[in-house]
Design a protein around this nucleic acid. Structure first.
Lengths: 215, 215
DNA sequence: TATTGTCTGTGAAATAATTCACATTGTGAA
DNA sequence: TTCACAATGTGAATTATTTCACAGACAATA
């Protein structure tokens, strides 16, 4: 039962970005937008934008471009396929706290509903509107709350173990901030955000006066 | 004078990852490694690893593979082209603090030497071994310290203004954590780390049982 | 010293992603 | 109405990236 997405990772990234930009525009009263305008905001080309939007099936008109609200709807129909997933975060350090407060403010369609740590001093509290539990209760809380995604913000040494705990509890998608790739079963999706590598990348390409590596 | 790197962004990312993995291995006494072993650690294929390492010019031997220390040297020769750049961070919120303490611990070749904020309560302190200044002193400190890279960890609304301050002060590379692409001159390199998009990506591909989108 | 098996380095092939370029379309103005 | 224009949607071409697959190399073994 391994259906594959017909849309590539790169395209999904861009669609998510377009949606955020469009929501912002919509918030300030804009109604229509042309592909070249959206391209300018997203730092890419109009051809790329049109190609991406093609996949949503929504079609604009030559004279007015795209209707912003409708476009947001169409993108969302692809991105939020089956409802709003619930998320658990493990590792209530500086970074974990930063992410908790970040997501409590601007709440997109994604909700962090529980946080975990092994340090008793950090548990049984509420941070950024999110209850903090001891990691030993992970499986139980995940089951009760219907959580499907996990965020790992523990140090590198602990990351794999947390990932194992997560997959054992039935989590099917993991966003990993630890600087080490995770070994997980085939049916679990992972992505890693690697701050050090990102900096090294910028440091490298800066030397070549090369712009916009990524966005 | 716009020389371009002969190595792609993707490859640089992987080389940086390899280097970290290799340093770790070296730290625990490993001496040699085969391409398929490194591939396993990095979640990719042996052909990919060999193709990437080709670019460093270092060549392994069939029976022993690659000499780890030498390989680290070779990768570093490409990644750290002209010395260790100094970095400034702007935005001493949760995320800023997280990054400061993260980089003070595990210090790679990159050093955050100054932090900035507009909130007087956050300045004139030392966090993670890094002195915190008021943003109004940015240009001055950058000049005095010889800072070339910047990290933006302010909210979305303030990001572009900070980027302008940075480029005005002569910063030539920016890592941006605000969820909005920056407009900068052509000679300034930027990359963006977008936590929300990363989560949306994982949420999306999880539905397709699709593994390892990235790493 | 000869043999064996495994791993490297790399052209060539395959696949993926982006850009080009243009026929088509819808709208505002005359 | 009709015209002219500016923007869309999309095949086709281009460019980038990954994978295949195999000749050559080299250490261990006998």
């Amino acid at each position: 039962m391994k259906r594959n997405s017909d849309i590539s990772v790169r395209t999904i990234e861009r669609l998510a970005l377009y949606r955020r930009l469009l929501r912002d525009l919509s918030g300030r009263g804009e109604v229509h937008i042309f592909s070249h305008q959206l391209a300018e905001l997203a730092n890419n080309t109009s051809a790329q934008v049109r190609r991406d939007l093609m996949l949503t099936g929504y079609t604009g008109t030559p004279r007015k471009g795209y209707e912003i609200k409708e476009l947001i709807e169409r993108i969302s129909a692809h991105l939020d396929l089956d409802g709003e997933p619930k998320i658990a975060l493990v590792g209530i350090g500086n970074l974990g706290r930063a992410i908790l407060s970040y997501f409590s403010y601007q709440q997109p369609t994604l909700k962090i509903v529980a946080a975990f740590d092994t340090d008793e001093n950090k548990t049984n509290r509420v941070i950024g509107g999110c209850r903090c539990h001891h990691l030993r209760d992970f499986a139980e809380v995940v089951k009760k709350e219907g959580i499907t995604l996990g965020i790992i913000t523990v140090p590198a040494q602990g990351a794999q173990e947390v990932a194992d705990t997560m997959t054992a509890a039935g989590i099917s998608g993991i966003l990993n901030f630890a600087p080490v790739p995770l070994r997980v079963p085939d049916n679990v999706c992972t992505d890693r955000i690697d701050i050090t590598t990102a900096l090294e990348k910028v440091a490298y390409f800066t030397k070549f006066n090369q712009k916009n590596i990524g966005n």
